[in-house]
Amino acid sequence: MNNSVIKVNNIVKEYNTGTVSVAALKGVSFEIKKGELIAVTGRSGSGKSTLMHIIGCLDQPTRGSYFLDNIEVSSLHPNKLAEIRNLKIGFVFQSFNLLPYLSAFGNVELPMIFAGIEKNKREKRVNELLELVGMSERALHKPTEMSGGEQQRIAVARSLANNPEIILADEPTGNLDSKIGESIMNLFMKLWESGKTIIMITHDPKVADKCQRKIELLDGEIL
């Protein structure tokens, strides 16, 4: 056993656009150890989003292998992949992606409902998480009643619901002004200090500089 949470081996991802196949990733290999804070950087079109989706088990590579917690995930059943996304990975998106008809509480609760956790445990956990992100007082508010920064805090709380190993954040500060972006960044730092593995996709150098290590992509290859 080694302590790498993510091990990517020579991953290739090709997209078929009609007759031409375009390679978004051309053989990428790296390892991420437990508790690391990694920035994946690169210009748009460099393949960083594709890489994030593969790491997040939202997409599967055309070739190559991907081990998450020593499990080969590139050929798993959709239900098993759903379970991994549910329990091992927490997503934070650039555009928050909260469900508009659920309250802050309901949004944070949702991943636990998918995991089949019973009600009183869910409620306890949601309250803890809202406390952690400093949103306890807005528990019953709908996303439309919240600012972008507040929505992103709820999204971070949601990503932590099932206490995953890894937090995958796709431009988490991209839609926020720099001051609020910084407070969100501080939240991530706090999570990292508590032992989470955090992979952050960004093209903001200030965000990237706060990370331990950078994986820089250019035209589908690691620089």
Binding site: N79, A82, F91
Partner: peptide, 16 residues
């Protein structure tokens, strides 16, 4: 569609 995508990302199984 987008909402369904979000749910899938946070771990909803297709049958859910």
């Amino acid at each position: 569609t987008r909402e369904i995508g979000v749910k899938i990302a946070i771990g909803a199984r297709p049958n859910q």
